[in-house]
């Protein structure tokens, strides 16, 4: 009886790990996609888009399966609501990465060469923030006392991303040779990338509360 339950739980543990792996993977794919876009390697960009869409689908499937298991097997009743919200939040981050690459595909923004590095840097920091969130999330499930260490890093990367975003937007609007519409289009993309880090920080803040609740 006990073993059966244990086996099922190990299944869920693995699914949670897989789901978080998908989020990490989406961050890396997003970086590859942006890099390919900036290098105008549209074939590599299309591959990244396909990969990230598959990753998103797999992530969605995993999240649904985990949520179903948690509800039908009435697991972790004391933290069920929090874990559900956490999974939804993490899934929203995954969707953001996919959404970003999709927007690049649809709107095809014309990014001037002098902004390439800043865009890369901005996405790098956002991905780092999400990575730190993923690590805190893993810690929440496996070793709750170390969550705070990772959450601290999320804040760090979010601030770094803010700095780059501000700098980039100043540079965009300070550029003399661009139309206002072009500037606004670039600003929109800069903000889209920056929002990923902001959301990662929001998730980390909520996670912090879940940890406190579980420690009580």
């Amino acid at each position: 009886m006990g073993n059966g339950i244990l086996k099922r739980k190990i299944g869920i543990e693995k699914q949670v790990d897989d789901f978080l792996d998908r989020l990490s993977e989406a961050g890396l794919l997003c970086r590859n996609g942006l890099d390919a876009y900036l290098k105008e390697n549209m074939e590599a960009f299309a591959t990244s888009l396909t990969c990230i869409r598959n990753t998103e689908h797999r992530g969605d499937d995993l999240r649904r399966s985990i949520e179903q298991d948690i509800y039908t097997k009435t697991l972790i009743p004391e933290s069920r609501g929090d874990v559900m919200e956490l999974l939804e939040d993490m899934d929203a981050l995954l969707d953001r990465f996919t959404g970003l690459i999709w927007q690049f595909e649809i709107e095809r923004p014309d990014i001037c060469a002098e902004f390439h590095e800043s865009f890369r840097e901005l996405l790098q920091y956002s991905v780092e923030a999400v990575e730190a969130t993923v690590r805190s999330c893993r810690a929440f499930f496996k070793d709750i006392h170390t969550v705070a260490d990772h959450i601290h890093k999320v804040s760090f990367w979010e601030k770094e991303s803010d700095k780059v975003s501000t700098r980039l937007q100043r540079a965009i609007f300070g550029h003399g040779n661009l139309h206002l519409s072009h500037k606004m289009h670039l600003r929109f993309f800069a903000k889209q990338v920056d929002r990923i880090a902001d959301e990662a920080e929001d998730v980390a803040d909520r996670l912090n509360i879940y940890v406190i609740k579980r420690m009580l």
Partner: peptide
């Protein structure tokens, strides 16, 4: 705290113990 038991494992052990 020191055994670093996974949340789902702890849940399972507790549930079995309660039963």
């Amino acid at each position: 705290r020191h055994a670093k038991i996974n949340m789902f494992n702890l849940d399972s052990l507790t549930r079995s113990g309660l039963l």
